[in-house]
Nucleic acid binder design. Structure first.
Lengths: 65, 65
DNA sequence: ACAAAAAGTCTTATATATTTGACATAATTT
DNA sequence: AAATTATGTCAAATATATAAGACTTTTTGT
């Protein structure tokens, strides 16, 4: 699996730390970190929560051509 | 959670049964059924596999406004 | 250069996605 | 109408996502 830089970028755009995002989404900092690092297979609901907090869509954050 | 009719429709468009789709995706028929029934929180990788088999995108199958 | 904050990594424990098998009902086919 | 196929559902077992805590490294700020 590959790093998810889109989340990192969207997070930066909102000036949020991994911890901030994790709390906003209701998940652990370690989980958020693992997702960004790409060694994780998150749950759809978690993906959707992340999207909503960051104001992005599933395709924008989790789809790769 | 609510029924995922988008998957059902995309599946119908390809003339695939739940079992067909499940096998193409490498998952159990029960799992596919549960996802369509909406009482499930599938994994991102599984969602992506479903999308690829059905020729759709994450937003098209799993995003709700 | 130092201090503090943020990010990355590991281990153990817990919650939950997914499997397997079996059975019931709905829909199709002959 | 009988037989076959597709769908829906349940219970028990297994695999894996996520939690919690501790520690290291990297980045940022002063």
């Amino acid at each position: 699996m590959t790093k998810n830089l889109k989340i990192k970028a969207a997070r930066a755009a909102k000036d949020m730390t991994q911890k901030d995002l994790a709390e906003a989404v209701g998940v652990t900092r370690q989980t958020m970190n693992a997702i960004e690092m790409g060694d994780y297979n998150p749950t759809l609901n978690l993906c959707i929560s992340i999207c909503k907090v960051l104001g992005k869509t599933l395709d924008e954050l989790f789809w790769e051509e």
